[in-house]
């Protein structure tokens, strides 16, 4: 599932991943994401950080703290490239990985497949 308020990004990620045979669900904000999470049970959630309403950090925390969704792999997909943002996502929000936009399509698809296959563990 890709959660982003920018239509272009949703379309781009959907195109990259569906071409490799993945089914992609999209959501435009946190509320839609939470609803679809329960209905669709995605294997991976790719989250923008700066969104109206719930931020990616908040949404990630909710996903990771809910018993129903805590085992879902969550990766940030954002333009925020500071180390401080990455630490906040991985440590405070419980994200499993962090991608910085812009992305290289081939490289990104490989990374997503790694996350789907062997999501990293917390030690």
């Amino acid at each position: 599932m890709v959660v982003d308020d920018e239509e272009d990004i949703l379309n781009l990620i959907e195109r990259i991943l569906s071409r490799r045979g993945h089914r992609v669900i999209t959501a435009r904000d946190g509320r839609e994401a939470l609803r679809k999470l329960k209905e669709e049970r995605p294997d991976l959630v790719l989250l923008d950080i700066m969104m109206p309403g719930l931020s990616g950090y908040q949404l990630c925390k909710i996903i990771k703290q809910s018993r129903e969704t805590s085992s879902t792999t969550v990766a940030m997909l954002t333009v925020k490239s500071d180390d401080e943002d990455k630490v906040r996502a991985l440590e405070d929000s419980g994200a499993d990985w962090y991608f910085t936009k812009p992305i290289d399509a081939k490289r990104f698809a490989r990374s997503v497949e790694w996350l789907l296959r062997n999501p990293p563990r917390r030690g």
Binding site: L90, P120, R121, R122
Partner: peptide, 19 residues
Amino acid sequence: LNPDIPSVAGALKVRILAR
């Protein structure tokens, strides 16, 4: 680092400190 998330977060903090 070890190839896990807490270690990566730690390495990012070292980068912040070094900078």
